[in-house]
Design a protein around this nucleic acid. Structure first.
Length: 822
RNA sequence: GCGGCGGUGGCGGAAUGGUAGACGCAGCGGACUCAAAAUCCGCCGGUGGUGACACCGUGGGGGUUCGAGUCCCCCCCGCCGUACCA
């Protein structure tokens, strides 16, 4: 008997060459068709070589792309690199080598691996965000935003990372530390560039309802945007003849306000204290507060501190004078930077009132209070208004809230409003390896956009990449000094670069027309493919990238450059692959190298293994033994196929197969049905692969029986066909062997035949009082009475029914009979 | 604190309210072999029993139901996100 040896190192490159030579995965340009589908995985940041997380990401995407193609779709499945960024730059600082060198070496390694993995990518659309051909259009989009006021410059208290020596967006500050450096972030007053993402807060929130994303990602975005319904209320300060507005979600507790607090950064704090006895104390407090470590200050469990301002404001609802304080528990960048303090009904205000011995007033009654008990303040629950004003007392909270807001409005002292937690996106970075901001600063004309025909503003070469509190670009004097495009006088280029999240906020649009040198994309191409039908990536981008990309899409739609208002119709977030329960890292020495694994086992084994590990949206722990097992399975399927192709005569499927043949046919169609559902309706890859394993086990059994050769060949063909989205090379090879060279990737996805999905006999589960007491085979078409009769005749069931009276019989067709006895 | 996700054999994990543990890994036994590897076959939640079987078993406690891993209430543990957001 001939030896059939599965050799992935021979099979995989052979088929990859065919796909490469024939440009199999290239989707042509042209008018839209109903079959168009856009499948996209988040683009990688090229550093070193790809890790197993990349393997999982692109394997999921590839499985989806293959499945869609074989179901008649024309699939856009491109690849690119998010190539600007700090790691390459930090490496450059260390080595003196241009960041481009390390970046392009990494890109080459990624390209090589993706090809080795056999990912079905349309390489003609490849892009790198660091190339002038790409960032020219990043700059172009920036200028369109600038024209619309969506990109603007302002001085603001910003997050300064002292290690990276750059500012960071709020989204990049984790626990008060820089996302990458881990350094405690300082607050600095600097003039910076921002995108007006807050203009889109409401849309970003509302239109979450229109997309098919995991609930937890939507929730994270909702929380980040942080919509609060409430009211703005004006408090008059007679001493300075001015008004201070506060934002509150609880206008119903206005009558309970007993003091007033401002943030240390509030511009009027020092002015208010000026000339009072408190002046020196206030100045000292503010000085300390604003230089305080941001994280420690943000700690809610810290004891409240503050200083009396020596002034008071008038409560608009009852004319009471409320003493004013400055305290660092009030934040300048939320609401108006000033609050009305209601210690009776707010934990924080209560803590402050306790410490400084301020009055506490109850204005909401606790409805669940037992007779004779006193309300424990602060009381934050619902209830009915008390101690307020005759027209409001007795109203439940929600009604009182509306009534008081309405009253404020008619009195001109306030109005209902919505407040968002989301802040504008700080996009400028004082770093080298990023997209230059296409602006020229002129003493006479201000910030002048670089004319479109002068784009791209190319990143100049410098010798020293080390930031010194300003961008390294500032050292490139020949580049910095230019004539003002507006008045022609000497002017200077903006030396900050853009946050790399800007680059990745529109790359998915560029893929639709990536070679276009007249525009970022043509309207026809972008509207043909957008939105992305299925986006796949890590959960860690739940707020950053995914929120920014949504903002860009909406802004570009408002600029009438694209039609889609949401970039990603459906999103799938994959779980992490860990090793020994821990995140892989070089320092822990627990990194699994896909390159080494692929060299040992072949790509098919690795790809199939990472999807078999468990549900792909959950974290999974790597197991070398598991890979071994997968390797055996892939080899076994190929080997059985190759052997059958050689030894079993081909022929038509028998119209009436024998018992073994019928069993195998049924299993085959069961697998088709199961896997089609697992792939089409859920991302249940692990159970789909398990179903092919079951089919293969049935095939092994059939080998010992006498199923017709044609049935065995058919079942083997189907097993390969169904495994193809995961293991494209081995299955393509085996399928070609079994079917006279037929190309599996050109084959339509199989359809399960209903007649083979139904058996003519079922296994009937017999229960007594809900406990399984036996099983009998029953005709599939038996009626309830017949099933009951069969169940009763099962010996063990009879034993349990003996001496009891049956009060009820539950029959579930095709499944079970349950006797309820007494 | 708040929000989300999760807790099932030795392990990874399966289970439209209807046979808990599919499939795989590990382990055990067998075939082939001089031997090993590879391959193939079988067993594999716990306790008791020669066995037929019986009882227990999906983090804990209650409940709904003929029937609960699945639905409801309370609690415990783990992970992730977020946090003085007025």
């Amino acid at each position: 008997m001939a030896e059939y040896r599965y050799d992935p190192q021979e099979i995989e490159p052979r088929w990859q060459r065919v796909w490469e030579d024939e440009q199999t995965w290239v989707v042509p340009d042209g008018p839209p068709t109903d079959a168009d589908a856009y499948v996209l995985e988040m683009l990688p940041y090229p550093s070193g070589e790809p890790h197993v997380g990349h393997l999982k990401n692109y394997t999921i995407g590839d499985a989806v792309a293959h499945f869609k193609r074989r179901n008649g779709h024309r699939v856009l499945h491109p690849m690119g690199y998010d190539a600007f960024g700090l790691p390459a730059e930090n490496n450059a600082i260390k080595t003196g080598q241009h960041p481009r060198v390390a970046t392009e070496a990494a890109i080459a390694s990624f390209q090589e691996q993706f090809r080795r993995w056999g990912v079905s990518i349309d390489w003609t659309r490849e892009l790198g965000t660091h190339t002038p051909e790409y960032y020219r259009w990043t700059q172009w989009i920036f200028l369109r935003f600038f024209e619309r006021g969506l990109a603007y410059r302002k001085e603001a208290a910003v997050n300064w990372d002292p290690v990276e020596e750059t500012v960071l967006a709020n989204e990049q500050v984790i626990d008060g530390r820089g996302e990458r450096s881990g350094a405690l972030v300082e607050v600095r007053q600097l003039t910076q560039w921002f995108f007006r993402i807050t203009d889109y807060a409401e849309q970003l929130l509302d239109e979450l309802d229109t997309i098919d994303w995991p609930g937890h990602v939507k929730t994270q975005q909702r929380n980040w945007i942080g919509r609060s319904q409430g009211a703005e209320v004006a408090f008059r300060c007679d001493d300075l003849d001015t008004e201070y507005t506060v934002f509150t979600t609880r206008p119903d507790t206005l009558f309970g306000a007993t003091f007033f607090v401002m943030a240390p950064e509030h511009p009027d704090v020092l002015k208010l204290a000026e000339g009072t006895e408190q002046q020196a104390q206030v100045e000292e407090y503010v000085r300390q507060a604003i230089t305080h470590d941001a994280r420690e200050r943000g700690d809610a469990s810290r004891e409240k501190t503050g200083v009396y301002l020596g002034r008071s404001v008038t409560n608009p609802v009852n004319g009471e004078q409320l003493p004013m304080f400055v305290a660092d528990y009030v934040l300048m960048d939320y609401g108006t930077g000033a609050i009305m303090a209601v210690p009776g009904h707010d934990d924080r205000d209560f803590a402050f009132a306790e410490k400084y011995d301020l009055p506490v007033k109850q204005v909401i009654a606790d409805p669940n209070l037992a007779e004779g008990e006193e309300t424990a303040l602060p009381y934050v629950g619902d209830g009915v208004l008390i101690n307020s004003a005759p027209q409001f007392d007795g109203l439940p909270k929600a009604e009182a809230l509306d009534a008081i807001t309405k009253w404020l409005d008619t009195e001109g002292k306030g109005h209902a409003t919505v407040n968002y937690r989301l802040r504008d996106w700080l996009l400028s970075r004082q770093r080298y390896w990023g997209c230059p901001i296409p602006i020229i600063h002129c003493d006479a004309c201000g910030a002048v956009p670089v004319p479109d025909d002068q784009l791209p503003v190319k990143l100049p070469d410098v010798t020293d990449y080390k930031p010194k509190g300003k961008s390294p670009l500032a050292a490139a004097e020949d580049w910095v000094n230019v004539a003002c495009p507006s008045c022609g006088k000497p002017a200077k280029r903006e030396t900050d670069t853009m946050d790399t999240f800007v680059d990745s906020s529109w790359y998915f649009l560029r893929y639709t027309d990536s070679q276009n040198d007249q525009a970022p994309f043509s309207r026809e191409a972008v509207d043909r493919w957008m939105p992305v039908d299925q986006y796949i990536g890590g959960v860690e981008h739940a707020i950053l990238h995914l929120l920014y990309a949504r903002f860009f899409t909406k802004a570009l739609a408002d600029l009438d450059l694209i039609s889609a208002r949401e970039p990603f119709k459906a999103l799938f977030t994959q779980g992490m692959i860990t090793k020994d329960g821990a995140k892989m890292s070089k320092s822990k020495g627990n990194v699994v190298s896909p390159r080494v694994m692929v060299e040992k086992y072949g790509a098919d084994t690795l790809r199939t293994y990472v999807l078999f590990m468990g549900p792909p949206d959950q974290d999974a722990d790597w197991s070398d033994e598991g890979v071994d097992g997968m390797s055996k399975f892939i080899a076994r399927l190929w080997r059985l196929s190759a052997e059958a192709a050689d030894t079993l005569p081909a022929g038509e499927l028998p119209a009436e197969p024998n018992a073994d043949g019928l069993r195998l046919l049924r299993k085959t169609h069961w697998a088709i049905d199961k896997i089609t559902g697992d792939l089409g309706e859920r991302f249940s890859f692990n159970t789909a692969i398990a179903a092919v394993m079951e089919l293969l086990n049935e095939l092994s059994a059939a080998k010992r029986g006498d199923a017709e050769p044609a049935v065995v060949r058919f079942a083997l063909s189907m097993a390969n066909s169904l495994l193809y989205p995961f293991s494209p090379h081995s299955t393509t090879d085996a399928y070609a062997l079994l079917n006279g060279g037929t190309r599996l990737w050109e084959e339509t996805w199989p359809t399960a035949e209903a007649k083979y999905l139904e058996a003519d006999e079922i296994e009937l589960v017999c229960q007594v009082m809900g406990k399984v007491r036996g099983r009998v085979t029953a005709p599939a078409d038996a009626d309830d009475a017949e099933l009951e009769r069969l169940a009763r005749s099962e010996p063990n069931v009879a034993t349990h029914l003996d001496g009891k009276s049956v009060v009820k019989v539950i029959v579930v067709q095709g499944k079970l009979v349950n006797f309820v006895v007494r």
